[in-house]
Nucleic acid binder design. Structure first.
Length: 362
DNA sequence: TCTGGGGTCCTAGGACCC
DNA sequence: TCTGGGGTCCTAGGACCC
C-alpha cells in the first residue's frame, strides 16, 4: 500500500484576519477578538497581541491588563462561518477528500494525486487569491505529522515533514507540543521523569499502561514516535448537540436556574427540529462556583427533539442534583443522535425530513 | 486575574444477559 | 458452599481539541 500524503491547512489567526477585512486600518496593531462580558475569554489574538502574552482562552480581563492598547472586537460567528465556508469551498475544488476540523482548519488527503506537494502549493495560493486570507500548510505521511508541520511553519508557512524528520525536529521539545498531549498528561509525564518527545518515544509501553491505561498509554508512545494511521474522514456526523451558558454572575436556587435551563432546552430543540434530528440521551451540565463540573443524564426509549420532553427531563435532573452552591454554568445536551436517513427509512418517512442530510460538525 | 462554548473520546464501575 | 467470563448498555468524570 502506498504511503499516505496528508496536508493540514490551518488559517492564520482566522477570526482576527476576517475582522481585518472589515477594518483594514487595524492591520499591524494588536487586535483581540473577545466577548465583552465579565467572564469572557479571548477567542483569537493577532500576532501583535500575542507578543503581550494574549492567546486564545486568555480571560478577556487579563488580556486588557496585559495589552491595554489592543483593539478589542466582539466575535461575529455568523461572518466567520460564512468566510470559513468560502475557504472550505476552495479546498474542495482542489481536493476530493477534505476533513473539516472546526471553522479554521482542515485535513486534505493528497495520497492519490500525481503531484501532491504541487497540489498543496496550489491550494495555499488559491485560498489567498480567492478569499484574501492566509493559511499555513503542513504536509506529512499522517494527520499528526501534517498538523505539527503546519504549526511549526506558522504564520504563512509551508512545511513538508517525514515522520523521521518530525521525530528529529521535536526530539528535545516537551511532549505537550504534540496534539493529544495536554497540560494534565504533560505534567504527569514530567512527574515520571519524561520531559521530552524523544524520552516519551523511547518509553516502553508497559511503563505507560499503569498510569494511563491500556489504550491511552501505548497511544501516547505512538504519538511521540509520530505513528498515526487516523484516516481523513470527509463525512463526519455529529453524535451529540448541546447548549450551555456561563452566567455573568452565579445563580442561586432552582427558581433562578430552571428558567435558564428551559431557555437552553428551547434553543437546542429548535436546532434539532430544524435539522430533523432526535436523540435518546438527555443530559445536563452544572458548573458550581468552585469550578467543579457535574453531569447528569438519562436515556429514554425513543429518540426525541420534543421540547416538552427535553425540558421535563432536564429539569428533573436539575432538581434531583439540587446544587448546594452558587451555579456559574448550566448546560443541556442531547446525545445518541440517530442517523436521519435511517430514521426516515424506518418510520416510513416524514416528507420534509427525507431530503435533509445530517449537518457537518462545524 | 480566575478560567467560553461546542464538540470528541477514554476510563471505570455497575447492571444485566448469556 | 464461595463465586466464570464476555459482551453490551448506561452513567459520571475527565482530558483534550478548535
Amino acid at each position: 500500500m502506498n504511503p499516505r500524503c496528508i496536508a493540514h491547512v490551518d488559517m492564520d489567526a482566522f477570526y482576527v484576519s476576517v475582522e481585518l477585512e472589515r477594518r483594514p486600518e487595524l492591520r499591524g496593531r494588536p487586535v483581540v477578538v473577545a466577548g465583552s462580558g465579565p467572564r469572557a475569554v479571548v477567542t483569537t489574538a493577532s500576532y501583535e497581541a500575542r507578543k503581550f502574552g494574549v492567546f486564545s482562552a486568555t480571560p478577556a480581563a487579563r488580556a486588557r491588563r496585559r495589552c491595554p492598547e489592543a483593539v478589542f472586537v466582539e466575535p461575529d460567528f455568523a461572518t466567520y462561518r460564512a468566510r470559513s465556508a468560502d475557504v472550505m469551498a476552495v479546498l474542495r475544488e482542489h481536493v476530493e477528500r477534505v476533513e473539516v476540523m472546526g471553522l479554521d482548519e482542515a485535513y486534505l488527503d493528497l495520497t492519490d494525486l500525481p503531484q501532491p506537494q504541487a497540489a498543496a502549493r496550489a491550494v495555499k495560493h488559491a485560498v489567498r487569491e480567492r478569499t484574501g486570507l492566509v493559511c499555513s500548510v503542513g504536509i506529512g505521511p499522517s494527520k499528526l505529522v501534517a498538523k505539527v508541520a503546519s504549526d511549526a511553519g506558522k504564520p504563512d508557512g509551508f512545511l513538508v515533514l517525514t515522520a523521521a524528520e518530525a521525530r528529529a525536529r521535536f526530539a528535545d521539545a516537551p511532549p505537550g507540543c504534540i496534539p493529544g498531549i495536554g497540560p494534565k498528561t504533560a505534567a504527569k509525564l514530567d512527574r515520571m521523569g519524561i520531559g521530552t518527545v524523544a524520552a516519551l518515544a523511547a518509553t516502553a509501553d508497559d511503563r505507560l499502561v499503569d498510569p494511563f491505561g491500556p489504550r491511552l498509554g501505548p497511544w501516547l508512545g505512538a504519538l511521540a514516535r509520530f505513528e498515526d494511521d487516523d484516516p481523513v474522514e470527509p463525512v463526519r456526523v455529529a453524535k451529540s448537540e448541546s447548549r450551555e451558558t456561563t452566567f455573568d454572575s452565579d445563580l442561586n436556587g432552582l427558581e433562578a436556574l430552571e428558567p435558564a435551563l428551559t431557555a437552553l432546552c428551547d434553543d437546542l430543540c429548535a436546532a434539532l427540529r430544524d435539522s430533523g434530528r432526535r436523540g435518546r440521551t438527555i443530559g445536563i451540565k452544572i458548573r458550581l462556583n468552585d469550578f467543579s463540573t457535574h453531569t447528569r443524564a438519562r436515556t429514554i426509549e425513543g429518540a426525541t427533539h420534543d421540547v416538552t420532553v427535553v425540558r421535563g427531563i432536564a429539569c428533573e435532573l436539575l432538581r434531583s442534583f439540587d446544587p448546594q452552591r452558587p451555579v456559574r454554568l448550566l448546560g443541556v445536551r442531547v446525545a445518541g443522535l440517530e442517523d436521519v436517513v435511517a430514521d426516515c427509512r424506518d418510520r416510513g418517512g416524514e416528507p420534509q425530513e427525507q431530503l435533509k442530510l445530517p449537518p457537518p460538525m462545524v
